[in-house]
Design a protein around this nucleic acid. Structure first.
Lengths: 228, 228
DNA sequence: AAAATAGTGTCTATAAGACATTATCCA
DNA sequence: TGGATAATGTCTTATAGACACTATTTT
């Protein structure tokens, strides 16, 4: 083992949520060099005896202040270009997290410096290290996954309406979808959503049926983005 | 940097090809401990000043003896469970390579011990380390990517027929596809393949038109696997 | 001529796009 | 009652599945 070059291994998180009809990314302002006072992805070093998914989940709870696991967390990719971190040879395993809009805003130890930033506000070169690239990859992954998985519900609370789910698609894709065709597609695709049997109360207009995430892991057939 | 636990970082390759109507995986028999004499994925340590894609490409050429880059190489995922390698904390970045059936069989320095093994011959627990899991993930990735990308042509020589391309799909998916509907789909999807203008010669039956890989990076609409 | 393989055409079933209508709440 | 939102229905178009037929080569 001592014959081989030592690396530091970190995890970095692309944490996305939908709030106020805009896609938001969780960023932290770096308090220490390098890239001090610049925005960066939340993350940190992997512990000696820690598996990679555990490290990602740990950082996610630390940065969001959420005790229980909600939403969705998956590995995005690994970035290790020499020179990407001036401190030395650091390889980072990036993860993509999709979370509902949290009623409890971020609060916790590391979360004090964390902020939700609309992805439209992020400009190239603004982020520390190679985090621009990682964010771009994460956004494309999220957009693509909505096509052939039921993961849009990861952006929703446990019980949600078809209109809420449609808002997720429209926000993440930046497109408008026909409410009637969307309703037919969602309720007609096996396992996409499961009806709760109750409806919303106290809202404007006709009450909407509530649904939970269904058992399907893939959508058959997929819901494809409208072509440009 | 010295405050943080040191890791070794390796790359491992899931190299697939289609030969004799069967999907084959490139495996090496380990010549050194640990797991000596067991089958394992080709791979090795990342060099100090080497980017991860470069390390993967280097290992690929070393193990296959191919000088020029052919086929397709993409990052598959990163595996770092503590204890996955008895030598210490080793994180491996796994890559998926799709290659045409090479007229020159594997030959080269490290390639002497490399062999093409039909994936149906691989039994659980047969491979070293956690390579069973990596192979399973690689196979699923390859099968899924054929649905919505034109990557099946990465298994073919530069010029190929529709029947050859269909054989790739049938072999990777383990299904039979209707030749006429497949022909319509391939030639009708924009950018999937580009006609060369020549045909095969000296084969049995009517000569087949030759095609090259088209400019598309995604298939619209995708070619979905037949449901079970 | 027969066998083999390539390519085209036709009909049907399924799903998506466009859009009208009805249903049920709150103010 | 009117405004707002949810849900259903209809028509058209695009695509996939099933399958018949024609075309061009080798033997």
């Amino acid at each position: 083992m001592t014959d081989y070059p030592p690396f530091a291994v970190t995890v970095d998180l692309v944490v996305l949520t939908v709030r106020a009809d805009a896609l938001h990314l969780l960023l932290v302002r770096r308090g220490v060099p390098p890239d001090r006072d610049r925005w960066a992805l939340p993350g940190g070093f992997v512990h000696v005896d820690e598996d990679l998914p555990d490290a990602a989940a740990r950082e996610l709870t630390e940065e969001t202040g959420l005790p229980e696991p909600v939403g969705h967390l998956e590995q995005l990719g690994t970035y290790g270009r020499p020179g990407r971190d001036p401190r030395g040879r650091v390889v980072t395993v990036a993860w993509l997290a999709l979370l509902p809009d949290l009623p409890t805003p971020v609060a916790g130890s590391d979360a004090a410096l964390a902020e939700w930033v609309p992805v439209t506000r992020i400009t190239p070169g603004q982020l520390a290290f190679d985090h621009d690239l990682i964010v771009a990859d994460g956004l494309e992954r999220a957009r693509a996954k909505l096509e052939y998985t039921p993961l849009a519900s990861a952006f929703c609370p446990p019980e949600f309406t078809v209109a809420q789910l449609r808002a997720v698609y429209e926000t993440v894709w930046g497109t408008r979808l026909d409410p009637r065709n969307f309703h037919r597609k969602v309720t007609g695709t096996p396992g996409f959503v499961s009806p709760v049997g109750r409806a919303t109360e106290g809202e404007r207009g006709r009450p909407a049926q509530l649904f939970r995430r269904g058992p399907a892991t893939r959508l058959h057939p997929p819901m494809l983005r409208p072509e440009p």
